[in-house]
Structures are given as structure tokens and as C-alpha cells.
Simulated scan of single mutants.
Amino acid sequence: MWGMEHLGLFILAGWLLNLTPGPDVLYIVSNALRSGARAGVVAAFGITAGCFVHIFAAALGVGALLATSATAFTALKWLGAGYLLYVGTRLLLSRAPSAMHLEAAPEDSTGAAALKDIFLRGFWTNVLNPKVALFFLAFVPQFIAHDADNKTLAFVLLGVLFNLNAIPINLGYAFLAAWAAKRMDAVQRGMHWLDRVAGALFVGFGVKLALTEAP
């Protein structure tokens, strides 16, 4: 159908891949734990928006450029690594939340400006990671029929399907983390240290990306 094949396997593989913890899942969970379900949902949609950029860029050949040009890959790699280090450092240096903030977070009282910031950070965390572009370039073509009339259209449709299938899983992480934060006093009391742990992990992801060699 429309140049696509093995859709059932494609959907199942996508779900399994999205269940695997990584920078995206960490970003969603850390925001949901700290500021409630609404913040986690906004983080999830920021990441989803970033994935759409990679899907359409790969369909237009930008992904192929990253796969074949060491210069292009390195430039985006350092931008992505720098941004992950920036996000991690912000979390590491964040101040301990007040008792009032801890009480407000489970009620999803995060303001519009803060939610916009959460969305944009999720968006750029994803867009500036060249490994996401290479993932789509390596994974999606396996499910495009060899005799497809329009392989670019098939690529876009599969990429969009993958991204839409990821939304329930990402939202599930957000709601589960927010549910846990509401019911676990230890989580709320340790929110400051959770920020530290999340910050250290983001720094680790940034260092790992910086050390990644061009394909």
C-alpha cells in the first residue's frame, strides 16, 4: 500500500524502540516528575515536533548528506552535544525548589511561558541530534517496497506513522511519572536530587554524542 510493506512489523518495532529509555524519555520523565503531567505532555510534543523535522529532512536528502558528509555530521553533532550539555548543566545548577513549588507541581500549575520553554527545549534536543536523522535513514527504508512508485512519499508516510505511534508511549511516560510524583512523597522531597541525576545523564548523553564518529 503506497509503497509500504510489513506495516505490522514496522509498528511493533517502532513501539519497542520508543519504549527504550534515551534522552527523549529522560526529558519527558524529568519534566513530568518536576512539574506534573502537563509539563511531561508538552515535553513529549516538543520531541514529536523535532522528529517531524528529521523525517522531512531525511526525505529531502538531508539525512543522506549527514550519512555521507563527515563535515555536515560533525557540525550537527557538536551543536547537538553542546545543547545536551547545556540542558544537563542547567539541571545540575538548578536551585532546590521551595516547599510551595513542590506542592504546586502535582497540580500542573506550570505557567504558559515555562511550558513554551519546555516544548522548545524538547524540540531542539531532538532536532540537534544527528543520530535521530541517521536512525530514520537506516530504519525506515527497510519497509519501503522495492517497486514503490514514489519512494519519497512512502518514506514520509512511514516516518509520520512512526512518529504518531510514538505519541502514546511518550504520553504514557509523562502520565506515569506525574502519577508517581503525586503519590510518592520521597519523589517530591528528592526532586532537587532528581534534577541532579537527570542533569548528569544529559551531560553523559552529550559527551557520548560528542565522541560519536561520523558513519
Rank of each mutant, 00 (worst) to 15 (best):
A67T: 09
P215I: 10
K182S: 12
F136D: 05
G206A: 08
N31W: 11
A210Y: 12
E213D: 06
N170W: 12
A210L: 04
F52L: 06
A138T: 10
A177P: 11
L65Q: 07
F52Q: 02
N150Y: 05
L7N: 04
A198F: 14
I169D: 04
L153K: 02
L76C: 07
A180L: 14
M191T: 10
A166G: 13
N129R: 01
F205S: 13
G8L: 11
L128Y: 01
V197F: 15
A133L: 06
D195M: 08
H6E: 09
L66I: 07
L92Q: 04
R95I: 07
L7M: 10
H6S: 10
V140H: 05
A114P: 04
A37S: 14
H54E: 04
A138R: 05
A13Y: 14
G63E: 03
F205M: 04
A133R: 00
Q188E: 02
W193R: 14
F56V: 10
A59K: 00
P130Q: 01
H6T: 02
G204F: 06
F119H: 11
H101Y: 01
L134M: 14
L76S: 08
L153M: 12
E213H: 14
V132E: 13
M1D: 11
L157C: 09
A43Y: 08
T74D: 13
R38D: 05
G82H: 13
E103I: 04
A138G: 13
L76Q: 15
H54S: 13
F205L: 09
L91E: 03
H192L: 04
L171R: 01
S109L: 13
A166L: 11
A99M: 03
I11V: 15
A72C: 09
R90S: 10
F73K: 00
G46D: 07
D24H: 03
I28E: 15
H146A: 15
G190V: 05
W15E: 01
I11G: 12
A72P: 13
W2Y: 15
N18D: 10
G36W: 08
M4E: 07
A145I: 06
V207C: 10
W124A: 01
A148R: 00
A148E: 07
I144K: 01
A166T: 12
G159W: 10
V53M: 06
T68Y: 05
A210R: 09
G22F: 07
T68W: 00
S109G: 05
A39S: 14
S69A: 01
H146E: 15
N18F: 04
A186K: 11
F73W: 06
A59W: 02
A138N: 09
T71S: 11
V207K: 08
N126Q: 06
L102Y: 00
L171S: 07
R34Y: 01
D117K: 04
T110A: 11
A174E: 09
L85Q: 09
S35P: 03
L33G: 05
L66M: 03
